[in-house]
Simulated scan of single mutants.
Amino acid sequence: MTFTKTTEQSSKYENLEQMSVSSLLSNINNEDKTVPLAVEKALPQIEQLINAIIPKMKLGGRLFYIGAGTSGRLGILDASECPPTFGVPFDLVIGIIAGGDTAIRKAVENAEDDTTQAWNDLKAYNINENDVVVGIAASGTTPYVIAGLEECNNHNIITGSISCNEGSPLSLTSKYPIDVVVGPEFVTGSSRMKAGTAQKLVLNMITTATMVQLGKVKGNKMVDMQLSNSKLVDRGVKMIMEEIDVSYVEASDLLQTHGSVRKAVDFFNLSTIK
């Protein structure tokens, strides 16, 4: 298969600077509408990766994301949202970006071209065979990411990838590649747009489906979420009220005493049985 970077192909739209704001928004939106359809085509690949992640996590393994630029930032975003959403430890899902934390806000020159740093970054976390590493790169050609996955393969660590170019070097390196081919961007080469949106959708799927399978959701509720602000405390109280039919005050007391929706409901149910 010949590798073609569709993410770098010229936009279907010309003379953007001559468009009105209304036209710009309409055309961007039209392109964005194609992204979920591209993700849908990749669902079998996404499922295979998730089915590889779950048993490793049940053995105590972790999920790592590695990426550069926008891709790295998206991995960090997804990882950082897992503890408050699912009540898991902060080091269960870990996002690593080329160039380190500085690169989250400001590009670090040549960081994505470093072919040794990704493995060094992973070794800092005592990476092992129970872990899974997912490389994220819209182009599928980022040296930092590819080299990191190659080292993981050499050390019998399961690898996955998310790319927006079919048959990319990254996809060929990964054991569980995900290719979401979204085509040329509205602004030529600006892969923070459709490609970034596609990556975010896939990341949502990976962690949400995995956490559901690990028992971190009950019914459709985030029963293990961290109660880090008033909005979430109120949501937790209402979850308890819905689950065990008590007043707001009683539910609030239970939540304050036990610290999570799950623990509060479990305690109430056990005390009722007794």
Rank of each mutant, 00 (worst) to 15 (best):
residue 144 Y to D: 09
residue 146 I to V: 15
residue 146 I to M: 04
residue 147 A to V: 02
residue 149 L to G: 00
residue 151 E to P: 00
residue 154 N to I: 00
residue 154 N to E: 13
residue 155 H to M: 02
residue 156 N to A: 14
residue 157 I to G: 02
residue 158 I to L: 13
residue 159 T to M: 01
residue 161 S to F: 00
residue 161 S to N: 06
residue 162 I to Y: 01
residue 163 S to K: 00
residue 163 S to F: 00
residue 163 S to E: 03
residue 165 N to E: 12
residue 165 N to L: 11
residue 166 E to A: 14
residue 167 G to L: 04
residue 168 S to W: 02
residue 168 S to M: 10
residue 169 P to W: 07
residue 173 T to R: 01
residue 174 S to D: 07
residue 174 S to Y: 02
residue 175 K to R: 14
residue 176 Y to C: 05
residue 176 Y to R: 03
residue 176 Y to S: 03
residue 177 P to A: 03
residue 179 D to S: 15
residue 180 V to D: 03
residue 181 V to H: 01
residue 181 V to I: 15
residue 181 V to M: 05
residue 182 V to A: 04
residue 182 V to M: 09
residue 183 G to F: 09
residue 183 G to C: 01
residue 184 P to G: 10
residue 184 P to L: 06
residue 186 F to R: 12
residue 187 V to R: 09
residue 188 T to I: 14
residue 188 T to Y: 08
residue 189 G to Q: 09
residue 189 G to P: 06
residue 190 S to T: 13
residue 193 M to Y: 06
residue 194 K to D: 11
residue 194 K to T: 05
residue 194 K to L: 11
residue 195 A to P: 04
residue 197 T to L: 12
residue 197 T to K: 06
residue 198 A to I: 11
residue 199 Q to M: 11
residue 200 K to I: 14
residue 203 L to G: 06
residue 204 N to A: 10
residue 207 T to Q: 02
residue 208 T to A: 08
residue 209 A to R: 08
residue 209 A to I: 14
residue 209 A to K: 11
residue 210 T to D: 03
residue 210 T to P: 00
residue 211 M to L: 07
residue 212 V to A: 13
residue 214 L to R: 10
residue 215 G to C: 08
residue 218 K to M: 10
residue 218 K to G: 04
residue 219 G to W: 03
residue 219 G to Q: 14
residue 221 K to H: 08
residue 222 M to T: 07
residue 222 M to A: 02
residue 222 M to I: 13
residue 223 V to Q: 00
residue 224 D to A: 12
residue 225 M to L: 10
residue 225 M to V: 12
residue 226 Q to T: 13
residue 226 Q to D: 05
residue 226 Q to E: 14
residue 227 L to H: 09
residue 227 L to F: 08
residue 229 N to K: 12
residue 229 N to Q: 07
residue 230 S to Y: 07
residue 230 S to P: 00
residue 231 K to Y: 12
residue 232 L to S: 12
residue 232 L to P: 05
residue 232 L to D: 08
residue 233 V to C: 10
residue 234 D to F: 06
residue 234 D to N: 15
residue 238 K to P: 00
residue 238 K to R: 15
residue 239 M to C: 03
residue 239 M to T: 01
residue 241 M to D: 02
residue 242 E to R: 09
residue 242 E to H: 12
residue 243 E to Y: 04
residue 243 E to D: 12
residue 244 I to P: 11
residue 245 D to I: 07
residue 247 S to A: 10
residue 248 Y to I: 03
residue 248 Y to T: 06
residue 249 V to D: 15
residue 252 S to M: 10
residue 255 L to G: 08
residue 256 Q to C: 04
residue 256 Q to W: 06
residue 257 T to V: 10
residue 257 T to E: 15
residue 258 H to F: 15
residue 259 G to W: 01
